[in-house]
Simulated scan of single mutants.
Amino acid sequence: MSSKPIEGRMTADAQGGVVVFHIGMRINNFRAVRSWWPVAVAMPRMLKELSRDRDSGLLGYRLLLGGPRLMYVVQYWESLEKLLAYAADRDKEHRPAWAALNRRIREGKGKVGFWHETFVVPAGAHEAVYINMPAFGLGEALGVIPVGRRGDRAADRLTTV
């Protein structure tokens, strides 16, 4: 993310639908490094692989911390089909990481937690505003445009309201 704010009111340059995918882990026992460390380092490898492949469908992502125990990623995808195709592809990083995660969760007896949520958001059902902010979130993934080009109010930008 660029640290230079873009002056004024901007919105994401989003024309169609988008898939928002949240995925993360919770460290339930810090001393059980063998349970959580491999999980923590698998995600950056997958994100690197996806970022190198322009056809993967990943539009952008943000790594976040939710306190000392929780790490998660917000991802923006161009379609559910591309997200699911990546998850199922036996030649990509995800499949072995998923198998290893499941094994560690079983063996670790609660020492590491895992979660994900998927939101399929149709065109017109999402909006964003960024005021004096660097490109961020969906705006970072798709680019930003002045708010006036999509409507001055959130209700104007949401066509399904």
Rank of each mutant, 00 (worst) to 15 (best):
G8E: 04
M10A: 01
T11D: 09
A12L: 07
A12C: 04
A12M: 06
D13L: 05
D13F: 03
G17R: 09
V18T: 13
V19W: 01
V20T: 13
V20S: 11
F21I: 02
I23Y: 00
G24I: 04
G24Q: 12
G24A: 10
G24M: 06
M25W: 06
I27N: 00
N28G: 07
N29M: 08
F30N: 03
R31H: 11
A32D: 15
V33N: 10
V33R: 15
R34A: 14
R34L: 15
S35P: 00
W36K: 03
W36G: 00
W37N: 05
W37H: 13
W37L: 15
P38D: 12
P44N: 10
R45D: 09
M46L: 12
S51I: 07
S51A: 15
R54A: 14
R54N: 06
R54Y: 01
R54S: 10
S56V: 10
S56H: 04
G57C: 07
L58H: 01
L58N: 03
L58V: 09
L59F: 01
L59R: 13
L59S: 04
G60F: 06
G60M: 09
G60P: 05
G60C: 05
Y61M: 03
R62V: 05
L63F: 06
L64F: 03
L65H: 14
M71G: 14
M71V: 09
Y72S: 00
V73S: 11
V73Q: 11
V74E: 11
V74K: 12
V74G: 03
Y76Q: 02
Y76I: 04
W77K: 05
W77S: 04
E78R: 14
S79A: 08
L80M: 12
E81C: 06
A85I: 06
A85Y: 02
Y86S: 00
D89L: 05
R90I: 03
D91K: 08
D91M: 07
K92G: 00
K92H: 06
E93F: 04
H94L: 07
H94F: 11
R95Y: 02
A97T: 05
W98G: 01
A99Y: 07
A100K: 15
L101Y: 05
L101V: 06
L101I: 08
R103V: 09
R104D: 08
E107Q: 14
E107H: 11
G108C: 04
G110P: 10
V112E: 01
V112K: 00
G113T: 05
F114L: 12
F114E: 07
H116L: 09
E117Y: 13
T118P: 10
F119I: 02
F119C: 14
V120M: 08
V120T: 15
V121I: 15
A123K: 15
A123M: 09
G124F: 09
A125V: 13
H126Y: 07
E127V: 02
